[in-house]
């Protein structure tokens, strides 16, 4: 709960998030033997957007300009509750996993409203699809987290990380593996990756997340993009640190912090590599095939729950 901890983690969130999405874009291009944008291109995009003028639609109400700030802040707050470098997240006292899910849901709520406000069909379609799919993804997310919380005995992330961090390598325990798989599918759905949504295109039939940002420009677009990448970082951290807490620092000595930071960045890049692999090898699913994917995630999460006491 220390102030420097909060500042450090915020800085880390702000800087690392665009890097991760930059890497993913770059590696994906490389795999498709294209040169692709530079890894730190997102930083320049955000700076450019911040500087550019903004055009706001005449139909839009104040909700339109309020939404980007909400998305940005909720992602940051969720980030502060997730243990990145130390087992004890800065804001862990103010909220555990459920609070993270709630904040991300709040961000999505206002993102969807922002999409509807200008009154264009694209925004409406994007919001409708975003809300429907995330609604279907939610039970799998909560059930997977419940499984992990049950083994650790509480929804407080730091305790969960401490529990899995223990000497016995709980990583290969079947419950954890299935929960990880379920959460990975939910990650793809939440961050709008290929099988569910195509982040790179502006074709209205295939874009869900991008459709809602269509009307945004200038400063608002910067916060929206930045918020989205922070949300992606938060989910990936959740995946990485809860299931593979190797090298995470238990005390706050400088050396331990350095080791855990490098281990954390390494794990993030590894996970991004997996995401890139999944994105390049898969085509985008038809919209009404996505629920089947998400119900598969739900079944996986239930199996994980069963296995907590069946294969004990």
């Amino acid at each position: 709960m220390s102030l420097p901890g909060i500042l450090l983690q915020t800085l880390l969130l702000l800087l690392l998030a665009p890097l991760v999405s930059g890497c993913i874009k770059n590696w994906k291009a490389k795999l498709q033997n294209r040169r692709g944008p530079r890894v730190w291109q997102p930083y320049f995009d955000i700076l450019k957007f911040l500087r550019k003028d903004m055009i706001i639609s005449e139909h839009a109400s104040r909700v339109f300009s309020f939404a980007p700030h909400v998305v940005f802040l909720t992602s940051l707050l969720a980030g502060l509750m997730v243990p990145m470098v130390t087992t004890q997240a800065p804001l862990s006292l103010f909220g555990g996993m459920l609070a993270v899910i709630g904040l991300l849901a709040l961000g999505r709520f206002f993102l969807a409203l922002g999409g509807l406000d200008p009154g264009s069909a694209f925004g409406g379609m994007g919001s409708s699809r975003e809300m429907s799919l995330s609604a279907i993804a939610e039970p799998a997310l909560v059930l997977a987290i419940f499984t992990v919380a049950i083994t650790a005995g509480s929804t407080d992330l730091s305790r969960v990380v401490a529990a899995t961090h223990g000497p016995t390598l709980k990583l290969l325990n079947p419950a954890h593996l299935m929960a990880f798989a379920a959460l990975f599918i939910v990650l793809l759905a939440e961050t709008g990756r290929i099988p569910v949504d195509n982040p790179a295109t502006h074709l209205e039939l295939t874009m869900i997340h991008e459709a809602m940002l269509l009307e945004y420009s200038g400063r608002h677009l910067a916060f929206m993009e930045w918020g989205a990448s922070i949300k992606q970082l938060v989910l990936m951290t959740l995946l990485v640190n809860v299931f593979f807490p190797i090298g995470i620092a238990t005390d706050s000595s400088l050396a331990a912090l350095a080791v855990s930071l490098s281990a954390y960045v390494l794990k993030l890049l590894l996970l991004s590599a997996i995401i890139v692999l999944v994105e390049t090898t898969n085509a985008k699913l038809r919209l009404f095939r996505v629920p089947d994917l998400l119900s598969a995630a739900f079944v996986l999460a239930t199996l994980a729950l069963l296995s907590t006491f069946l294969f004990q």
Partner: peptide, 17 residues
């Protein structure tokens, strides 16, 4: 962030795309 980078930018009311 707005003060640091975007002091000069203006906002205009336009038509939806």
């Amino acid at each position: 962030l707005w003060l640091l980078f975007a002091r000069g930018s203006k906002t205009r009311i336009g038509a939806t795309w």
